[in-house]
Design a protein around this nucleic acid. Structure first.
Lengths: 105, 105
DNA sequence: TTATATTTGACCTTAATTGTCAAGTTAAAT
DNA sequence: ATTTAACTTGACAATTAAGGTCAAATATAA
């Protein structure tokens, strides 16, 4: 399947591919290396702004990275919820409904 | 379609159906009427605990109410995100993948 | 009108998120 | 084996967001 890599893994792989150090990238993000280290190991969440900046720094597709990131936030929202899966489906239904409404004005 | 009513609307309808006042229900929840009023008008989110207690007080199906509630939290997470819809789909894929992994140990 | 129910908004408290810093590991290179 | 640079860890501080109170303003209904 696709989408099996976490945002953190994507970021680390690409950073190493480019031969950049935590120090280099975290300086551009204006945060401590500790945080970037944690983000790459999925121990912390990045902010949306950091994700967008990381896409630039590492030449990653912005939309793709953002979708990965947002999907992780969604899953985080329903962590340890037994009904998470159902909730996701209902959320999609609602979303479709809302989008329909919008396209009808 | 189903699922077109917000959690707040569900709560208000059922409360009025039962002839209960904000005062009665909010007392049981141990919060001010102001908050319950806002929850019913979707101006504030309830906590998970409040949702569960509300299901009891109002004789609503717990799982149903919780799913409604969680789906709203999910949608809130991606409010004003253009890529929200894609993120939702990816979240579902990831969820399936995770569930597969779990059933294989 | 007067009483009761609900709503609104200003403000406070608590909890979660995001961050720093310094000390601890790990790994590579002599 | 020792040094050096990169990364990781955990305690804690700052900031932002969530959840709450209260009192005054609006409905609603008798």
């Amino acid at each position: 399947m696709k989408n099996n890599k976490s945002t953190g893994e994507i970021l680390r792989e690409k950073r190493e591919e480019k031969g950049l150090l935590l120090r280099h990238v975290s300086a551009e993000l204006d945060i401590d290396t500790a945080i970037l280290s944690k983000i790459e190991r999925s121990e912390r969440k990045a902010t949306k702004e950091q994700i967008l900046k990381l896409a630039e720094i590492l030449d990653l597709d912005k939309d793709n990275l953002l979708v990965q990131y947002l999907s992780e936030r969604i899953l985080y929202e329903i962590r340890d919820e037994e009904l998470g899966s159902k909730a996701l489906k209902v959320a999609e239904q609602k979303m479709k409904y809302i989008n329909n409404q919008k396209s009808q004005d």
